[in-house]
Nucleic acid binder design. Sequence first.
DNA 1: TTATTCGCTTGACATTTATCAATTTTACCG
DNA 2: CGGTAAAATTGATAAATGTCAAGCGAATAA
Lengths: 230, 230
Amino acid sequence: MRAEELTALRGLRLFAGIAEATFNDLVAAGYLQFFPPGVTLIHERDPADFLHVVVEGMVELYASAGGRETSMELVRPVGVFILAAVLSDQVYLQSARTLTRARVLMIPAERVRRWLAQDAAFMSAITVELSRSYRQAIKALKNQKLRTGAERLANWLLVAAEAQGADSVMIDIEKRVLASYLGMTPENLSRAFATLGPHGVAPHGARIQLTDRTALQRFAGPDAMIDGIE
Amino acid sequence: MRAEELTALRGLRLFAGIAEATFNDLVAAGYLQFFPPGVTLIHERDPADFLHVVVEGMVELYASAGGRETSMELVRPVGVFILAAVLSDQVYLQSARTLTRARVLMIPAERVRRWLAQDAAFMSAITVELSRSYRQAIKALKNQKLRTGAERLANWLLVAAEAQGADSVMIDIEKRVLASYLGMTPENLSRAFATLGPHGVAPHGARIQLTDRTALQRFAGPDAMIDGIE
DNA sequence: TTATTCGCTTGACATTTATCAATTTTACCG
DNA sequence: CGGTAAAATTGATAAATGTCAAGCGAATAA
Protein backbone atom coordinates (compact mmCIF):
# COMPACT_ATOMS: atom_id res chain seq x y z
CA MET A 1 0.00 0.00 0.00
CA ARG A 2 1.27 3.46 -0.87
CA ALA A 3 2.23 5.87 1.87
CA GLU A 4 -0.46 8.44 1.11
CA GLU A 5 -3.08 5.71 1.18
CA LEU A 6 -1.88 4.58 4.58
CA THR A 7 -2.16 8.18 5.72
CA ALA A 8 -5.69 8.39 4.36
CA LEU A 9 -6.61 5.16 6.10
CA ARG A 10 -5.10 6.40 9.35
CA GLY A 11 -7.31 9.45 9.01
CA LEU A 12 -10.47 7.36 9.15
CA ARG A 13 -12.68 8.17 12.09
CA LEU A 14 -12.68 4.46 12.80
CA PHE A 15 -8.95 4.52 13.49
CA ALA A 16 -8.79 7.87 15.23
CA GLY A 17 -6.64 7.74 18.34
CA ILE A 18 -6.05 4.01 18.35
CA ALA A 19 -2.63 2.55 19.18
CA GLU A 20 -0.12 2.37 16.35
CA ALA A 21 0.27 -1.34 16.97
CA THR A 22 -3.47 -1.93 16.65
CA PHE A 23 -3.64 -0.01 13.41
CA ASN A 24 -0.63 -1.76 11.94
CA ASP A 25 -1.87 -5.19 12.83
CA LEU A 26 -5.34 -4.54 11.43
CA VAL A 27 -3.97 -3.27 8.15
CA ALA A 28 -1.40 -6.06 7.96
CA ALA A 29 -4.09 -8.65 8.53
CA GLY A 30 -6.24 -7.13 5.82
CA TYR A 31 -6.40 -8.07 2.17
CA LEU A 32 -6.09 -5.15 -0.19
CA GLN A 33 -7.60 -5.98 -3.54
CA PHE A 34 -8.61 -4.39 -6.82
CA PHE A 35 -12.01 -5.24 -8.19
CA PRO A 36 -13.46 -4.43 -11.61
CA PRO A 37 -16.79 -2.60 -11.80
CA GLY A 38 -19.93 -4.60 -11.18
CA VAL A 39 -18.45 -7.14 -8.81
CA THR A 40 -20.55 -8.21 -5.85
CA LEU A 41 -18.39 -8.00 -2.75
CA ILE A 42 -20.85 -9.23 -0.17
CA HIS A 43 -24.27 -10.85 -0.25
CA GLU A 44 -27.19 -10.08 2.02
CA ARG A 45 -27.78 -13.02 4.41
CA ASP A 46 -24.15 -14.17 4.40
CA PRO A 47 -22.26 -14.20 7.69
CA ALA A 48 -20.02 -11.17 8.17
CA ASP A 49 -16.47 -12.36 7.59
CA PHE A 50 -14.70 -9.11 6.80
CA LEU A 51 -14.85 -5.46 7.62
CA HIS A 52 -14.60 -3.59 4.32
CA VAL A 53 -12.85 -0.30 3.70
CA VAL A 54 -13.15 1.43 0.33
CA VAL A 55 -9.72 2.85 -0.49
CA GLU A 56 -10.38 3.80 -4.11
CA GLY A 57 -13.40 3.80 -6.41
CA MET A 58 -17.04 3.57 -5.43
CA VAL A 59 -19.14 0.85 -3.81
CA GLU A 60 -22.92 0.60 -3.69
CA LEU A 61 -24.76 -0.96 -0.78
CA TYR A 62 -28.11 -2.33 -1.86
CA ALA A 63 -30.86 -4.54 -0.57
CA SER A 64 -33.46 -6.84 -2.08
CA ALA A 65 -36.78 -8.29 -1.04
CA GLY A 66 -39.70 -9.83 -2.86
CA GLY A 67 -38.05 -9.42 -6.26
CA ARG A 68 -37.48 -5.69 -5.74
CA GLU A 69 -34.14 -4.02 -5.17
CA THR A 70 -33.05 -0.66 -3.84
CA SER A 71 -29.82 1.24 -3.41
CA MET A 72 -29.11 1.94 0.26
CA GLU A 73 -25.82 3.82 0.38
CA LEU A 74 -22.99 4.93 -1.86
CA VAL A 75 -19.58 4.50 -0.24
CA ARG A 76 -16.63 6.57 -1.43
CA PRO A 77 -13.02 6.62 -0.23
CA VAL A 78 -12.17 6.43 2.53
CA GLY A 79 -15.30 4.76 3.88
CA VAL A 80 -16.14 1.71 5.94
CA PHE A 81 -19.13 -0.50 5.47
CA ILE A 82 -21.06 -3.24 7.29
CA LEU A 83 -19.45 -2.42 10.59
CA ALA A 84 -22.50 -3.42 12.65
CA ALA A 85 -22.70 -6.95 11.24
CA VAL A 86 -19.00 -7.46 11.89
CA LEU A 87 -19.22 -6.30 15.50
CA SER A 88 -22.16 -8.48 16.45
CA ASP A 89 -21.02 -11.45 14.36
CA GLN A 90 -24.23 -11.46 12.39
CA VAL A 91 -25.33 -11.79 8.80
CA TYR A 92 -25.26 -8.88 6.37
CA LEU A 93 -28.52 -6.97 5.94
CA GLN A 94 -27.25 -5.43 2.72
CA SER A 95 -25.28 -6.50 -0.32
CA ALA A 96 -22.39 -4.56 -1.80
CA ARG A 97 -21.05 -4.24 -5.33
CA THR A 98 -18.45 -2.09 -7.04
CA LEU A 99 -19.80 0.69 -9.24
CA THR A 100 -16.36 1.49 -10.63
CA ARG A 101 -13.02 -0.23 -10.55
CA ALA A 102 -12.29 -0.14 -6.84
CA ARG A 103 -9.67 -0.97 -4.29
CA VAL A 104 -11.00 -2.46 -1.08
CA LEU A 105 -9.26 -3.40 2.14
CA MET A 106 -10.85 -6.40 3.80
CA ILE A 107 -10.03 -6.94 7.46
CA PRO A 108 -11.02 -10.29 9.00
CA ALA A 109 -13.97 -9.75 11.33
CA GLU A 110 -12.43 -11.93 13.98
CA ARG A 111 -9.37 -9.68 14.06
CA VAL A 112 -11.52 -6.58 14.45
CA ARG A 113 -13.41 -8.10 17.35
CA ARG A 114 -10.19 -9.20 19.02
CA TRP A 115 -8.63 -5.71 18.97
CA LEU A 116 -11.91 -4.24 20.05
CA ALA A 117 -11.56 -6.00 23.37
CA GLN A 118 -7.95 -4.96 23.79
CA ASP A 119 -7.78 -1.38 22.63
CA ALA A 120 -10.18 0.92 24.44
CA ALA A 121 -9.52 3.75 22.00
CA PHE A 122 -10.51 1.47 19.10
CA MET A 123 -13.69 0.51 20.88
CA SER A 124 -14.41 4.16 21.46
CA ALA A 125 -13.77 5.07 17.82
CA ILE A 126 -16.07 2.28 16.73
CA THR A 127 -18.82 3.61 18.96
CA VAL A 128 -18.49 7.01 17.33
CA GLU A 129 -18.59 5.51 13.84
CA LEU A 130 -21.53 3.28 14.70
CA SER A 131 -23.36 6.20 16.19
CA ARG A 132 -22.79 8.18 13.00
CA SER A 133 -24.06 5.30 10.86
CA TYR A 134 -27.16 4.95 12.98
CA ARG A 135 -27.96 8.64 12.65
CA GLN A 136 -27.40 8.49 8.89
CA ALA A 137 -29.87 5.62 8.68
CA ILE A 138 -32.45 7.53 10.72
CA LYS A 139 -32.02 10.51 8.40
CA ALA A 140 -32.48 8.31 5.36
CA LEU A 141 -35.68 6.91 6.84
CA LYS A 142 -37.01 10.39 7.56
CA ASN A 143 -36.06 11.47 4.04
CA GLN A 144 -38.03 8.57 2.61
CA LYS A 145 -41.09 8.90 4.83
CA LEU A 146 -41.45 12.67 4.95
CA ARG A 147 -40.64 13.77 1.40
CA THR A 148 -41.80 13.21 -2.15
CA GLY A 149 -39.40 12.01 -4.82
CA ALA A 150 -38.90 15.46 -6.32
CA GLU A 151 -38.15 16.87 -2.87
CA ARG A 152 -35.55 14.19 -2.20
CA LEU A 153 -33.89 14.98 -5.53
CA ALA A 154 -33.94 18.73 -4.84
CA ASN A 155 -32.26 18.26 -1.47
CA TRP A 156 -29.74 15.82 -2.89
CA LEU A 157 -28.81 18.42 -5.51
CA LEU A 158 -28.37 21.10 -2.86
CA VAL A 159 -26.07 18.90 -0.79
CA ALA A 160 -24.09 17.90 -3.88
CA ALA A 161 -23.75 21.53 -4.98
CA GLU A 162 -22.47 22.41 -1.53
CA ALA A 163 -19.93 19.60 -1.65
CA GLN A 164 -18.78 20.47 -5.15
CA GLY A 165 -18.76 24.17 -4.39
CA ALA A 166 -20.17 25.17 -7.72
CA ASP A 167 -23.32 26.41 -9.44
CA SER A 168 -23.66 23.12 -11.18
CA VAL A 169 -23.66 19.52 -10.03
CA MET A 170 -21.76 16.78 -11.82
CA ILE A 171 -23.45 13.41 -11.33
CA ASP A 172 -20.68 10.81 -11.23
CA ILE A 173 -22.94 7.77 -10.99
CA GLU A 174 -25.45 6.31 -13.39
CA LYS A 175 -28.80 8.01 -13.10
CA ARG A 176 -30.58 4.73 -12.54
CA VAL A 177 -28.40 4.19 -9.47
CA LEU A 178 -29.23 7.67 -8.25
CA ALA A 179 -32.90 6.96 -8.87
CA SER A 180 -32.74 3.78 -6.81
CA TYR A 181 -30.83 5.54 -4.05
CA LEU A 182 -33.49 8.25 -3.95
CA GLY A 183 -36.21 5.61 -3.81
CA MET A 184 -37.74 6.00 -7.25
CA THR A 185 -37.65 4.51 -10.74
CA PRO A 186 -35.35 5.93 -13.46
CA GLU A 187 -38.44 7.13 -15.30
CA ASN A 188 -39.58 9.07 -12.28
CA LEU A 189 -36.14 10.58 -11.80
CA SER A 190 -36.37 12.05 -15.30
CA ARG A 191 -39.78 13.46 -14.46
CA ALA A 192 -38.52 14.79 -11.14
CA PHE A 193 -35.88 16.78 -13.04
CA ALA A 194 -38.66 18.16 -15.21
CA THR A 195 -40.59 19.10 -12.07
CA LEU A 196 -37.57 21.00 -10.78
CA GLY A 197 -37.23 22.94 -14.03
CA PRO A 198 -39.33 25.90 -12.81
CA HIS A 199 -37.19 25.96 -9.65
CA GLY A 200 -33.89 26.67 -11.33
CA VAL A 201 -32.70 23.20 -12.31
CA ALA A 202 -31.48 22.61 -15.86
CA PRO A 203 -30.03 19.19 -16.67
CA HIS A 204 -27.45 18.86 -19.47
CA GLY A 205 -26.73 15.17 -19.39
CA ALA A 206 -24.78 14.38 -16.26
CA ARG A 207 -24.16 18.05 -15.49
CA ILE A 208 -27.03 19.76 -13.73
CA GLN A 209 -27.06 23.55 -13.82
CA LEU A 210 -28.56 25.24 -10.77
CA THR A 211 -29.62 28.66 -12.01
CA ASP A 212 -31.57 29.79 -8.95
CA ARG A 213 -30.36 28.36 -5.68
CA THR A 214 -32.88 30.36 -3.65
CA ALA A 215 -35.83 29.03 -5.61
CA LEU A 216 -34.54 25.48 -5.33
CA GLN A 217 -34.15 25.82 -1.58
CA ARG A 218 -37.67 27.16 -1.30
CA PHE A 219 -38.96 24.08 -3.11
CA ALA A 220 -36.68 21.60 -1.33
CA GLY A 221 -37.17 22.79 2.24
CA PRO A 222 -33.73 21.57 3.36
CA ASP A 223 -33.47 20.38 6.95
CA ALA A 224 -30.25 19.82 8.88
CA MET A 225 -31.94 16.98 10.75
CA ILE A 226 -32.24 15.10 7.45
CA ASP A 227 -29.63 16.45 5.06
CA GLY A 228 -26.84 17.28 7.48
CA ILE A 229 -23.69 15.22 7.28
CA GLU A 230 -21.92 14.39 10.53
CA MET B 1 -38.00 2.01 42.48
CA ARG B 2 -39.48 -1.40 43.17
CA ALA B 3 -37.25 -4.46 43.33
CA GLU B 4 -38.74 -6.18 40.30
CA GLU B 5 -38.28 -3.04 38.27
CA LEU B 6 -34.67 -2.87 39.26
CA THR B 7 -34.33 -6.46 38.13
CA ALA B 8 -35.97 -5.65 34.82
CA LEU B 9 -33.66 -2.68 34.37
CA ARG B 10 -30.66 -4.82 35.18
CA GLY B 11 -31.81 -7.21 32.48
CA LEU B 12 -31.49 -4.54 29.80
CA ARG B 13 -28.98 -5.41 27.11
CA LEU B 14 -27.50 -2.00 27.78
CA PHE B 15 -26.54 -2.99 31.31
CA ALA B 16 -25.54 -6.58 30.58
CA GLY B 17 -22.35 -7.51 32.34
CA ILE B 18 -21.47 -4.06 33.63
CA ALA B 19 -20.09 -3.54 37.12
CA GLU B 20 -22.59 -3.37 39.94
CA ALA B 21 -21.15 -0.01 40.97
CA THR B 22 -21.65 1.41 37.48
CA PHE B 23 -25.22 0.23 37.35
CA ASN B 24 -26.05 1.53 40.80
CA ASP B 25 -24.54 4.93 40.14
CA LEU B 26 -26.31 5.29 36.80
CA VAL B 27 -29.67 4.42 38.32
CA ALA B 28 -29.05 6.59 41.37
CA ALA B 29 -28.16 9.54 39.16
CA GLY B 30 -31.30 9.05 37.12
CA TYR B 31 -34.65 10.69 37.60
CA LEU B 32 -37.54 8.27 37.62
CA GLN B 33 -40.75 10.03 36.73
CA PHE B 34 -44.33 9.36 35.84
CA PHE B 35 -45.79 11.17 32.84
CA PRO B 36 -49.40 11.35 31.70
CA PRO B 37 -50.24 10.34 28.13
CA GLY B 38 -49.45 12.82 25.36
CA VAL B 39 -46.48 14.49 27.03
CA THR B 40 -43.55 15.39 24.81
CA LEU B 41 -40.40 14.14 26.51
CA ILE B 42 -37.83 15.33 24.03
CA HIS B 43 -37.82 17.64 21.04
CA GLU B 44 -36.02 17.07 17.77
CA ARG B 45 -33.11 19.55 17.45
CA ASP B 46 -32.59 19.89 21.21
CA PRO B 47 -29.23 18.88 22.67
CA ALA B 48 -29.23 15.41 24.21
CA ASP B 49 -29.27 15.91 27.96
CA PHE B 50 -30.58 12.57 29.16
CA LEU B 51 -30.57 8.94 28.19
CA HIS B 52 -34.17 7.74 28.48
CA VAL B 53 -35.33 4.33 29.62
CA VAL B 54 -38.99 3.37 29.42
CA VAL B 55 -39.82 1.45 32.59
CA GLU B 56 -43.60 1.38 32.20
CA GLY B 57 -46.08 2.46 29.53
CA MET B 58 -45.35 3.28 25.91
CA VAL B 59 -43.39 6.01 24.21
CA GLU B 60 -43.51 7.04 20.55
CA LEU B 61 -40.49 8.38 18.70
CA TYR B 62 -41.52 10.59 15.84
CA ALA B 63 -40.00 13.06 13.42
CA SER B 64 -41.18 16.11 11.54
CA ALA B 65 -40.12 18.02 8.45
CA GLY B 66 -41.80 20.45 6.12
CA GLY B 67 -45.05 20.37 8.06
CA ARG B 68 -45.32 16.58 7.83
CA GLU B 69 -44.86 14.15 10.70
CA THR B 70 -44.19 10.42 10.95
CA SER B 71 -43.93 7.85 13.68
CA MET B 72 -40.44 6.33 13.78
CA GLU B 73 -40.47 3.80 16.59
CA LEU B 74 -42.66 2.56 19.42
CA VAL B 75 -40.72 1.94 22.62
CA ARG B 76 -42.08 -0.45 25.25
CA PRO B 77 -40.62 -1.52 28.60
CA VAL B 78 -37.84 -2.05 29.11
CA GLY B 79 -36.42 -0.03 26.25
CA VAL B 80 -33.83 2.67 25.77
CA PHE B 81 -34.06 5.53 23.34
CA ILE B 82 -31.87 8.19 21.76
CA LEU B 83 -28.68 6.45 22.79
CA ALA B 84 -26.71 7.66 19.76
CA ALA B 85 -27.36 11.35 20.41
CA VAL B 86 -26.31 10.93 24.04
CA LEU B 87 -23.08 9.17 23.16
CA SER B 88 -21.93 11.71 20.61
CA ASP B 89 -23.23 14.69 22.55
CA GLN B 90 -25.39 15.77 19.65
CA VAL B 91 -28.91 17.01 19.09
CA TYR B 92 -31.89 14.67 18.88
CA LEU B 93 -32.97 13.62 15.39
CA GLN B 94 -36.33 12.51 16.72
CA SER B 95 -38.91 13.71 19.21
CA ALA B 96 -40.53 11.51 21.83
CA ARG B 97 -43.93 11.59 23.49
CA THR B 98 -45.83 9.30 25.82
CA LEU B 99 -48.68 7.35 24.25
CA THR B 100 -49.92 6.12 27.61
CA ARG B 101 -49.22 7.03 31.19
CA ALA B 102 -45.58 6.09 31.42
CA ARG B 103 -42.70 5.82 33.82
CA VAL B 104 -39.38 6.92 32.43
CA LEU B 105 -35.92 6.82 33.91
CA MET B 106 -33.77 9.71 32.73
CA ILE B 107 -30.03 9.36 33.20
CA PRO B 108 -27.90 12.48 32.69
CA ALA B 109 -25.97 12.15 29.43
CA GLU B 110 -22.82 13.40 31.05
CA ARG B 111 -22.97 10.57 33.57
CA VAL B 112 -23.44 7.98 30.84
CA ARG B 113 -20.43 9.29 28.94
CA ARG B 114 -18.31 9.33 32.08
CA TRP B 115 -18.96 5.68 32.94
CA LEU B 116 -18.50 4.75 29.32
CA ALA B 117 -14.85 5.73 29.59
CA GLN B 118 -14.40 3.89 32.88
CA ASP B 119 -16.27 0.63 32.48
CA ALA B 120 -15.19 -1.41 29.47
CA ALA B 121 -18.12 -3.78 29.86
CA PHE B 122 -20.53 -0.85 29.72
CA MET B 123 -18.85 0.43 26.57
CA SER B 124 -19.12 -3.03 25.10
CA ALA B 125 -22.80 -3.33 25.98
CA ILE B 126 -23.46 0.04 24.41
CA THR B 127 -21.79 -1.07 21.22
CA VAL B 128 -24.08 -4.08 21.08
CA GLU B 129 -27.15 -1.95 21.69
CA LEU B 130 -26.09 0.65 19.12
CA SER B 131 -25.41 -2.06 16.61
CA ARG B 132 -28.89 -3.46 17.19
CA SER B 133 -30.44 -0.01 16.77
CA TYR B 134 -28.56 0.56 13.54
CA ARG B 135 -29.72 -2.73 12.11
CA GLN B 136 -33.31 -1.98 13.13
CA ALA B 137 -33.09 1.33 11.31
CA ILE B 138 -31.72 -0.33 8.17
CA LYS B 139 -34.57 -2.83 8.31
CA ALA B 140 -37.11 -0.04 8.65
CA LEU B 141 -35.62 1.69 5.62
CA LYS B 142 -35.77 -1.50 3.57
CA ASN B 143 -39.35 -2.05 4.72
CA GLN B 144 -40.28 1.43 3.54
CA LYS B 145 -38.45 1.34 0.21
CA LEU B 146 -39.17 -2.21 -0.87
CA ARG B 147 -42.79 -2.75 0.13
CA THR B 148 -46.22 -1.27 -0.45
CA GLY B 149 -48.36 -0.13 2.45
CA ALA B 150 -50.52 -3.26 2.46
CA GLU B 151 -47.42 -5.44 2.49
CA ARG B 152 -45.99 -3.54 5.44
CA LEU B 153 -49.25 -4.02 7.32
CA ALA B 154 -49.38 -7.73 6.46
CA ASN B 155 -45.87 -8.30 7.77
CA TRP B 156 -46.53 -6.23 10.86
CA LEU B 157 -49.55 -8.41 11.60
CA LEU B 158 -47.52 -11.58 11.19
CA VAL B 159 -44.85 -10.36 13.60
CA ALA B 160 -47.47 -9.24 16.11
CA ALA B 161 -49.29 -12.56 15.86
CA GLU B 162 -46.03 -14.35 16.51
CA ALA B 163 -45.34 -12.18 19.54
CA GLN B 164 -48.85 -12.58 20.93
CA GLY B 165 -48.89 -16.28 20.16
CA ALA B 166 -52.46 -16.30 18.98
CA ASP B 167 -54.63 -16.47 15.90
CA SER B 168 -55.66 -12.91 16.43
CA VAL B 169 -53.78 -9.69 16.98
CA MET B 170 -54.77 -7.14 19.57
CA ILE B 171 -53.72 -3.65 18.52
CA ASP B 172 -52.83 -1.77 21.70
CA ILE B 173 -52.14 1.59 20.05
CA GLU B 174 -54.36 3.99 18.18
CA LYS B 175 -54.71 3.03 14.56
CA ARG B 176 -53.59 6.42 13.39
CA VAL B 177 -50.31 5.89 15.24
CA LEU B 178 -49.95 2.49 13.61
CA ALA B 179 -50.68 4.08 10.24
CA SER B 180 -47.99 6.69 10.75
CA TYR B 181 -45.53 4.07 11.94
CA LEU B 182 -46.23 2.02 8.82
CA GLY B 183 -45.75 5.10 6.65
CA MET B 184 -49.31 5.74 5.52
CA THR B 185 -52.37 7.81 6.35
CA PRO B 186 -55.14 6.50 8.65
CA GLU B 187 -57.46 6.36 5.64
CA ASN B 188 -55.05 4.14 3.79
CA LEU B 189 -54.61 1.87 6.78
CA SER B 190 -58.36 1.19 6.71
CA ARG B 191 -58.10 0.40 3.01
CA ALA B 192 -55.06 -1.77 3.56
CA PHE B 193 -57.12 -3.88 5.99
CA ALA B 194 -59.75 -4.20 3.28
CA THR B 195 -57.05 -5.26 0.83
CA LEU B 196 -55.94 -7.99 3.24
CA GLY B 197 -59.50 -9.31 3.59
CA PRO B 198 -59.12 -11.93 0.84
CA HIS B 199 -55.87 -13.03 2.50
CA GLY B 200 -57.40 -14.10 5.77
CA VAL B 201 -57.51 -10.84 7.73
CA ALA B 202 -60.73 -9.86 9.48
CA PRO B 203 -60.69 -6.74 11.67
CA HIS B 204 -63.11 -6.42 14.57
CA GLY B 205 -62.20 -3.06 16.00
CA ALA B 206 -58.83 -3.33 17.67
CA ARG B 207 -58.81 -7.12 17.46
CA ILE B 208 -57.71 -8.50 14.11
CA GLN B 209 -58.62 -12.10 13.36
CA LEU B 210 -56.13 -13.98 11.18
CA THR B 211 -58.15 -16.78 9.63
CA ASP B 212 -55.57 -18.04 7.15
CA ARG B 213 -51.99 -17.56 8.22
CA THR B 214 -50.63 -19.33 5.12
CA ALA B 215 -52.48 -17.05 2.73
CA LEU B 216 -51.34 -13.98 4.65
CA GLN B 217 -47.73 -15.12 4.50
CA ARG B 218 -48.04 -15.69 0.77
CA PHE B 219 -49.24 -12.12 0.34
CA ALA B 220 -46.79 -10.58 2.82
CA GLY B 221 -43.62 -12.29 1.70
CA PRO B 222 -41.99 -12.09 5.13
CA ASP B 223 -38.22 -11.69 5.16
CA ALA B 224 -35.98 -12.21 8.17
CA MET B 225 -33.68 -9.50 6.84
CA ILE B 226 -36.53 -6.99 7.32
CA ASP B 227 -38.92 -8.39 9.89
CA GLY B 228 -36.53 -10.25 12.14
CA ILE B 229 -36.03 -8.92 15.66
CA GLU B 230 -32.54 -9.15 17.12
C1' DT C 1 -17.02 4.31 -40.28
C1' DT C 2 -21.12 1.76 -39.30
C1' DA C 3 -23.64 -1.13 -36.37
C1' DT C 4 -25.02 -2.25 -32.00
C1' DT C 5 -25.82 -1.84 -27.38
C1' DC C 6 -27.19 0.42 -23.38
C1' DG C 7 -28.73 4.17 -20.71
C1' DC C 8 -31.88 7.80 -20.68
C1' DT C 9 -36.09 10.02 -21.85
C1' DT C 10 -40.92 10.43 -23.16
C1' DG C 11 -45.73 9.04 -23.60
C1' DA C 12 -49.70 6.31 -22.26
C1' DC C 13 -51.66 3.99 -18.73
C1' DA C 14 -52.23 1.48 -14.16
C1' DT C 15 -51.47 1.35 -9.35
C1' DT C 16 -50.60 3.29 -5.06
C1' DT C 17 -51.12 6.82 -1.95
C1' DA C 18 -52.86 11.22 -0.28
C1' DT C 19 -56.50 14.64 0.43
C1' DC C 20 -61.04 16.31 1.45
C1' DA C 21 -65.61 15.58 3.03
C1' DA C 22 -69.17 13.04 5.20
C1' DT C 23 -70.65 9.52 8.20
C1' DT C 24 -70.30 5.98 11.63
C1' DT C 25 -68.29 4.25 15.65
C1' DT C 26 -66.07 4.54 19.93
C1' DA C 27 -64.58 6.61 24.12
C1' DC C 28 -65.22 9.77 27.61
C1' DC C 29 -67.41 13.13 30.67
C1' DG C 30 -70.89 15.38 33.14
C1' DC D 1 -77.58 7.79 31.03
C1' DG D 2 -77.27 11.16 27.28
C1' DG D 3 -74.16 14.27 25.05
C1' DT D 4 -69.91 15.47 23.22
C1' DA D 5 -65.50 14.90 21.15
C1' DA D 6 -62.30 12.17 19.04
C1' DA D 7 -61.20 8.24 16.22
C1' DA D 8 -62.18 5.27 12.49
C1' DT D 9 -64.27 4.30 8.24
C1' DT D 10 -66.08 5.21 3.60
C1' DG D 11 -66.61 7.64 -0.77
C1' DA D 12 -64.96 10.80 -4.26
C1' DT D 13 -61.17 12.88 -6.26
C1' DA D 14 -56.36 14.29 -6.93
C1' DA D 15 -51.49 13.58 -6.71
C1' DA D 16 -47.54 10.65 -6.69
C1' DT D 17 -45.38 6.71 -8.29
C1' DG D 18 -44.76 2.54 -11.05
C1' DT D 19 -45.09 -0.15 -15.44
C1' DC D 20 -44.80 -0.91 -20.25
C1' DA D 21 -43.49 0.43 -24.76
C1' DA D 22 -41.24 3.25 -28.00
C1' DG D 23 -37.67 6.27 -29.44
C1' DC D 24 -33.42 8.97 -28.90
C1' DG D 25 -28.54 9.54 -28.28
C1' DA D 26 -24.02 8.62 -26.64
C1' DA D 27 -20.53 5.11 -26.03
C1' DT D 28 -18.39 0.98 -27.79
C1' DA D 29 -17.03 -2.73 -30.84
C1' DA D 30 -16.60 -4.71 -35.37
